[in-house]
């Protein structure tokens, strides 16, 4: 039993640390806030809030596993949300087009997903075909997509969506929010794809050493475009969830999610240098962040205090990871010292 546990800990230190932290936080807040924390309302509201930024965090995570980053996730989501919003408010088809609300909603969802996916494809092309470093490419598209949103809306919100669109964000079959089901399914699918398909394996290999993956016959360029398209698609889902929850779309909605998405990815053990990290661990990162969020709300902390604590958390996790790595590296470096040290591929 103990040896099994030791083996488990050694196999995935990130998971162990995260699970420990999660349990600690649940116990901590549970004992302080007691019924307030474990109330149905609180748990259900977590179920509503998690998916909103979880999709952005997921998009960020897969980009980071390739050794890149996607700074455009929020801007892309807003752009998609605004386009969908125009469909929903009748700006595209006119108010008297005779289309049923349901048709409009379906078109709007498709528009959001297509726009966001195209946004991702554009990122992918810049990175794969023009060799723009991901951070610069997505910094550029972040500004650009945001610019498109601002320009076409002139900075105003697109508001007033049909009820059946809003029900995406508000309905809760069996007491569990619909968006939570979507979140759960999407994560399961992405986690499965990452671990069990050649596409997922290629992402990891590329993230570790992209010259070696090129020499291994992996179609780097196609794979990168697909990965960023997937990140875009996930941003599109986030767009639908965000707009349906707040009944509006705006160019600067969810600005703070960019930081949170990176934070959760790093918290979940995604290595910013690429090639390492598990999507399933990111879920635990998301749960931790959400538990903190909810507890802070119950404590009536200001959003500013939350920001402070999140910043602190991010640093703390990075420092802990650093210490664990150093400790792990020391115990491993037996008799390897005098070998030619490989220069890490850039």
């Amino acid at each position: 039993m103990i040896t099994q546990m030791k083996k488990f800990i050694r196999q995935d230190t990130t998971l162990t640390v995260l699970l420990g932290l999660l349990i600690f936080l649940i116990l901590l807040f549970g004992s302080i806030l007691q019924d307030k924390f474990f109330s149905f309302d609180n748990i259900q509201s977590m179920g509503y809030q998690i998916p909103e930024f979880a999709f952005l965090a997921l998009a960020m995570s897969i980009a980071m596993i390739t050794g890149g980053i996607d700074l455009s996730v929020v801007a892309n989501a807003n752009m998609a949300g605004i386009m969908a919003g125009y469909v929903l408010t009748g700006a595209v088809f006119g108010l008297n087009s005779g289309m049923s609300d349901l048709t409009l909603v379906i078109i709007a969802i498709l528009v959001a997903l297509i726009v966001a996916t195209l946004g991702g494809v554009f990122n992918g092309i810049l990175i794969a075909k023009f060799s723009v470093p991901a951070i610069l490419a997505t910094l550029g598209t972040m500004t650009f997509y945001n610019g498109i949103s601002t320009a076409i809306t002139e900075g105003k919100g697109v508001v007033g969506f049909p009820d059946n669109y809003l029900s995406i964000g508000t309905s809760a079959p069996l007491g569990i929010p619909l968006v939570f089901y979507i979140f759960f399914i999407a994560f399961a699918v992405v986690a499965f794809v990452m671990v069990r398909t050649p596409f997922g394996q290629s992402i990891y290999l590329y993230g570790e050493n992209r010259i070696a993956s090129l020499f291994s016959g992996i179609k780097n360029e196609k794979m990168i475009i697909k990965t960023y398209a997937l990140a875009g698609f996930l941003s599109g889902i986030a767009a639908i969830i965000m707009t349906s929850r707040v009944n509006s779309a705006k160019y600067n909605y969810g600005d703070s999610y960019l930081l949170q998405a990176i934070l959760v990815a790093v918290l979940g053990g995604i290595n910013p240098n690429g090639g390492r990290g598990k999507v399933t661990n990111v879920i635990i990162g998301i749960l931790i962040l959400q538990i903190l969020q909810s507890a802070f709300t119950l404590f009536a902390f200001s959003p500013y205090a939350k920001r402070m604590i999140f910043g602190f958390m991010l640093l703390l996790i990075m420092v802990i990871n650093f210490i664990i790595d150093k400790w792990g590296a020391r115990s491993k470096s037996i008799a390897k010292d005098s070998e030619v040290v490989p220069q890490e591929a850039k």
Binding site: Q201, N209, S216, I218, A345
Partner: peptide
């Protein structure tokens, strides 16, 4: 150049061997 063109250092032997045979 083994280090820059061939190895995936943190990946397992098994994943390194399979990388050119994924299909």
């Amino acid at each position: 150049d083994r280090y820059t063109q061939a190895l995936f250092p943190t990946h397992s032997i098994s994943e390194n061997i399979s990388s050119a045979s994924l299909p």
